[in-house]
Design a protein around this nucleic acid. Structure first.
Lengths: 358, 358
DNA sequence: ATTACTATTGGAATCGATTCCAAACAATTT
DNA sequence: AAATTGTTTGGAATCGATTCCAATAGTAAT
């Protein structure tokens, strides 16, 4: 029993180290010579604890290395500090990362953590995912899609605070945040106009999605506010891929009075447009200016010349969705009433990313 | 009290609907006229329950719409059916989605769900994330990086079953799954050789990462197995971006005896190589064949001609990591002993994606 | 008939926190 | 001195499952 531990001692020591016995609030209470209620009060910053006892309790917590068991807290308080995050499709889009990152960072700041399920467009899985989350008593739900579109999420979602991310319901019955497509289209066109272009082509998508319709509206609105005529011939619709951009550009170049600038529905189409323009021997941006949409770094930054484009605010939408959810949780804690005012339908601006194609 | 509900009745009805009272195992027991133990036994498929009582209990469960409260289960059993998923960087890489998708799908199949934290390379956050996860009694941890590299994860991680995804520790002390870079380099080079090329350039990365070293080794090994000479001049190292690929390709084209095919470290460099080749008036693949690495769809599929490349098995690694974790959990349930055999260091093959550049 | 065993069951104890109530005590007012 | 008020505290009850133990009934073996 000298300073050197015996064999048995060291084994015990080892076992203690390898499987640290869980320290509970009871242990703290005993160690500090107080009741469990007092420890809990200190832990949760409740009033009416004398400074001395608080100090004692804190010392005990420190000394024993106490860590709360979240399951017990959740059981008692019915709050898990978890936010359920449901995505329809996580893999195909490089934007997914930005959405998740924004949401995750905002959640962490609010002391919450994300529980993730990816449903790959499967409605059954979607339903099951929401149920699982509710079983786990998540504080709220985020339902995120990888491109801006209308959705009909499982009804059961309405049982708990929920926010739609990059999507919306037709009846606007759930809070939602999406990109401001109209403004994006407007600003893109405006940039081209302000750089002196008078005839501006628009190579649009054919899919009847909000982005397609609203960017078009933005394009028209910009022309109108600068008193430029709208020429039907300058708008072509093609499939949303490089080939579509290529074909569309060719059509525009074949016009008797071709445009000096073109706004492409997205960067992939712009990529195709680049090819068409160069194949015809024109230079970008001297002969023809090009602006895209999405700011897909991999394309936009790597094209030559670098593609000027509008960025989708994925990161910001992720943050907004979680922050709004957190604010809902706060208010629903105070008043037990459900918010009666209509849920916000927010649109976030798409910032311009200037490179060299305009 | 006729068939039409009174005002008060309908209010009560509404309240019941809007806030469904939680059905507990006690309610089931009462309803079915059995004890709580019996209900629990049915729920967990334990033996020694007579068929009739089981049927009764199941009927009660169905009738009352019972759903278990996960927090209570976790508290009692100390198993949360949650897997912690920690990433260093989720946003920049389009591959992130594939990794997460694979992991998530495998987890769902195993009845688990992912708790996600993204640490943005911040060691403090990393530590905090692991602690939070342990507090929440996750069953295990996945530590994922967005490119293949050595790491030193927080020590505390070793307290619970953990798997490294797309990374490894130098001492191989944790199970790990990474891409088989050597084989990837080998197969890429082999393809070029089998298509009849004798002089094959390699535009490598400059970063001293495993991919850089191992793909080079694979390149050399392939040459050797086909009895082709290794020519130092055919290997150039540049920054891993389109500009680097462009510059590297130019160097190779300027050789007195230029290669007829080139293996690029990744698709972005291949993109630059394309530009160089075309600028010199050569055709792909007739004059010079090109193969890349990564299969970044956005680039490889959209280049003209489509880029043949080696695909990183992100999706598969995600699956493997979770499945291995699940198997660890199973065995650690049976034997209480920690697995003493050395943790597996798995390498998954990179499949070839044939397009038109070879 | 007695013993030994198995199959089935009910219900108390348990997990680890929070919360509420009553008690103890101090300070203030009447 | 008694009554009132306010502060601080301990500890029982609670959340909703699982698990273990003891009890019962039924069957087989002695």
């Amino acid at each position: 029993m000298e300073s050197i531990p015996t064999g048995i001692d060291s084994i015990i020591y080892f076992r203690v180290m390898s499987k640290p016995t869980k320290v509970t609030i009871q242990d703290i209470a005993r160690f500090a010579g107080v009741g469990v209620g007092t420890v809990s009060r200190v832990l949760n910053g409740h009033p009416n604890v004398s400074p001395e006892t608080e100090a004692n309790v804190r010392k005990a917590i420190e000394a024993l290395g106490y860590r709360p068991v979240v399951a017990a807290q959740t059981l008692r308080t019915r709050r898990s500090n978890v936010i359920g995050f449901i995505t329809d499709e996580i893999a195909t889009s490089p934007h997914a990362g930005q959405i998740i990152r924004g949401a995750q960072e905002a959640a962490w700041k609010g002391g919450k953590i994300l529980l993730l399920v990816n449903t790959q467009w499967d409605p059954e899985l979607e339903q099951a995912a929401v149920e699982t989350m509710i079983d786990r008593q998540v504080d709220g739900l985020i339902y995120a899609t990888m491109y801006h579109r209308p959705v009909t999420p499982p009804e059961i979602m309405r049982q708990i605070p929920s926010v739609l991310l990059d999507c919306f319901t037709e009846d606007a019955s759930l809070p939602s945040v999406v990109p401001d497509e109209f403004n994006g289209g407007y600003e893109a066109t405006k940039l081209l106009i302000e750089r002196g272009h008078q005839r501006i082509g628009f190579i649009n998508n054919t899919d009847p999605i909000p982005a397609q319709r609203l960017r078009m509206k933005g394009y028209c609105a910009a022309l109108e506010s600068y008193d430029l005529p709208f020429d039907e011939a300058l708008v072509v619709e093609r499939k949303s891929e490089p080939k579509g951009g290529y074909d569309g550009m060719m059509v525009l170049l074949d016009l008797p009075d071709p445009p000096s600038a073109v706004f492409c529905f997205n960067d992939r189409m712009a990529m195709g447009a680049y090819d068409a323009i160069r194949q015809r021997g024109f230079r970008i941006p001297q002969d023809i200016a090009v602006i895209g949409f999405d700011n897909q770094e991999l394309i936009a930054a790597n094209l030559y010349p670098g593609l000027t484009t509008m960025q989708l605010p994925h990161y910001e939408m992720g943050i907004w969705a979680v922050e709004y959810l957190l604010s809902m949780l706060e208010t629903s804690e105070k008043d037990d009433f459900k918010q009666e005012c209509s849920p916000p339908q927010v649109q976030l601006k798409c910032p311009l990313v200037l490179r060299d194609s305009v």
